[in-house]
Write a protein that binds this DNA or RNA. Structure first.
Length: 600
RNA sequence: GGGGCUGUAGCUCAUCUUGGUUAGAGUGCAGGUCUGUCACACCGGAGGUCGCGGGUUCGAGCCCCGUCAGCCCCGCCA
């Protein structure tokens, strides 16, 4: 991917070698790049010279340059940095390489100078067709080499373009880019904080921000009515393929808005981002209320690329003698499940694996029925009456899978089953983008263990205007003005309209067990701000890493982050985290419990 | 905190089933031949703490226990 056509020239080079084309034939160039590969034919030597724009072939002919320059080219090690002066020439017709962007030309060298000799690289940068990548561990250990690979260069360049697109678009919409602190006040709510000890305040700590949430609300109070930031966020939680301990969000907040304003803005931004990534997408996106998403998919971020919708079969099973179903229904639960078209082709073993997924998600088991010809078969079949087959609406060859119990158990179980059925039955189409807004989240969720109320989104989310009265009577039924944007089952961002009324903020704190004194201690600065003239406001935050990963077609966030962490949050190339000298700890008033320290 | 997979040459992987000769291949690397290659070709060559520690055994890359690291997943991620 050529990033710039202008200003490539520096004192030491005139062009990037990867940007040369047949139209440059006849021009003299000075190039600087890395030795990607070398072919020494005895007399002639070919060098593949690489920079961020690509690779060009340099031919070194002793008849033109003499034996000394030829020998330099013949002995230079892979990944060394060389300066080449020469002339861009068309290749002979039978020498054209159609697989290279620069394949119609080559650079006939007049001089070759090694300015950055390289030891033999620990992991290969240039790979033969079909050659496997080095292990993740090696790639992270030798990150500076891995980042040289054209794929990762492409990904980082794409990421740059996405960030610039976001900046350009939001700026054109009147949004101001404002930076917020990295050293912040610890917030015992939510994810674990990364903690930074204070030298000047003995026994006190900063935290790295989990998000700029409170700062952007204060910026609204201060009158910067449209704010954005490409914000680095930190969460000390365990990692996943799509979760890093530090990550980047496009963070947005605006005043005098309702949810519809933020949703429209986000859609327009996504259109721009995906266009930059080479995909045209259509707005507005589909929408699902949270309650409907849970009912139809068992998930608040359903993957809509395949159907497999859930349905309620409680009435089919209610009258039966089937013990599991009866007891679940008697306890106030339901029997829900999905039809799997042609699912009868799944083997017993495959269905067993689906059941173990469901069990792993907390369900007691999975009820399975098949329709074969006009008959229903499967363990529960003998309990079902004559009308059951019609009511289940199974076609010949269909499989039906049910879970019985309360929704809070069956939703996650059926969600897992649904995803895995789609995977096993190959129902996930390639190249399809299904954007979705999930709206009307509940304000609170109930901790299964303690029964305590917690915020579904965060404690600053405003309730739905129609549901404010429910806060006093039935808070679990109260909806929030919160919205998530989902793509193909992955949460890409989320936001809400915030509480701007200090009295409402106090009521919400009280409901989630934050008393007046605690609220004052933790969030006093926000409450003060809300009392000092706060406009109605709301916003959203989107995961840059995930967006870049999808648009790069990468399988892991690590492939779109320059220096990512491992599953144990280590940075292998630099060896972070690491112990610090005892004296440094003393200055910070920190003592390590029983651990050795280094003194270097 | 829990589950799964992996760890053998610089790199990617075999060998392991059933403990027993000198642990192999490709690639890379060093050397040699070669003036139109582009996965250059050809020749012969060097290269091993079988992640680490302990145990069982006459004998362990292989079996057992522990441990470390990487990856995937659950919990967690307001």
């Amino acid at each position: 991917m050529t990033t710039t056509k202008t200003n490539e020239a520096t004192t030491l080079r005139s062009r990037r070698c990867g940007s040369l084309r047949v139209t440059d034939a006849g021009s003299a160039v000075r190039l600087g790049g890395w030795i990607h590969g070398k072919r020494n034919l005895g007399g002639l030597v070919f060098l593949d010279l690489r920079d961020r724009d690509g690779i060009v072939q340099v031919s070194v002919d002793p008849a033109l340059v003499g034996d000394a320059v030829r020998d330099t080219a013949a002995t230079v090690g892979k990944e060394s940095v060389v300066l080449v002066e020469g002339d861009v020439v068309r290749r002979p017709p039978d020498g054209v390489n159609r697989e290279m962007a620069t394949g119609e030309i080559e650079v006939k060298a007049r001089s070759v100078r090694v300015v950055g000799p390289a030891v033999t690289p620990a992991i290969p940068v240039a790979r033969a067709k079909g050659e496997a990548l080095p292990s993740e561990e090696q790639r992270l250990r030798y990150r500076y080499l891995d980042l040289r690979r054209p794929e990762l260069q492409h990904n980082m360049i794409l990421r740059h373009r996405l960030l610039q697109t976001a900046r350009r678009f939001l700026t054109s919409e009147g949004y101001l880019e404002i930076e917020t602190p990295i050293l912040t006040k610890p917030t015992p709510e939510g994810a674990r904080d990364y903690i930074v000890p204070s030298r000047l305040h003995k026994g006190e700590f900063y935290a790295l921000p989990q998000s700029p949430q409170l700062y952007k609300q204060l910026l609204m109070v201060s009158g910067f009515d449209r704010y954005f930031q490409i914000a680095r966020c930190f969460r000390d939680e365990d990692l996943r393929a799509e979760r890093q301990p530090e990550f980047t969000q496009i963070d947005i907040e605006a005043s005098f808005v309702e949810a519809a304003d933020i949703i429209r803005l986000t859609e327009a931004l996504f259109v721009e981002l995906w266009r930059e990534g080479g995909r045209e997408i259509a707005a507005p996106f589909e929408r699902l209320r949270y309650a409907d998403a849970m009912e139809r998919y068992g998930s608040d971020r359903p993957d809509l690329r395949y159907a497999l919708e859930l349905f309620d079969a409680t009435d089919v099973f209610a009258a039966t003698e089937l013990g599991i179903a009866r007891s679940a229904i008697a306890a106030g639960g339901r029997v829900r499940g999905m039809r799997v078209p042609n699912g009868a082709t799944l083997s017993r073993k495959q269905v067993d694996e689906l059941e173990s997924l469901a069990k792993g998600a907390g369900a007691g088991g999975l009820l399975r029925l098949k329709r074969e010809g006009s008959e229903l078969t499967g363990p529960p079949a003998k309990f079902l009456d004559a009308g059951a087959r019609e009511r289940l609406a199974l076609a010949d060859g269909d499989l039906a899978l049910f879970a019985a119990g309360p929704d809070r158990i069956t939703n996650p179980a059926l969600d897992r089953v649904r995803q895995d059925v789609a995977r096993v039955m190959r129902l996930v189409p390639d190249g399809v983008l299904r954007f979705l807004w999930v709206t009307d989240f509940p304000m609170f969720e109930c901790d299964a263990a303690t029964g305590a109320l917690g915020p579904t989104h965060h404690p600053f989310t405003a309730p739905h205007p129609d549901d404010a009265a429910l806060l006093d009577t039935d808070p679990l039924r109260a909806r929030a003005q919160a919205y998530d944007v989902v793509l193909n089952g992955m949460e890409m961002g989320g936001g809400s309209i915030r509480i701007h009324d200090p009295e409402m903020q106090r009521r919400v704190f009280a409901l989630i067990g934050i008393d007046e004194e605690t609220a004052q201690r933790r969030f006093g600065f926000l409450l003060e701000g809300l009392r000092s003239g706060a406009p109605p406001h709301g916003g959203i935050a989107m995961g840059v890493d995930r967006i870049a990963m999808l648009l790069a077609g990468a399988g892991s966030l690590r492939d779109v982050i320059a220096f990512p962490k491992t599953t144990t949050a280590s940075a292998l190339f630099e060896g972070a985290p690491s112990p610090v000298p005892e004296a440094d700890l003393r200055a910070l008033h920190v003592r390590i419990d029983g651990a050795a320290t280094v003194t270097s």
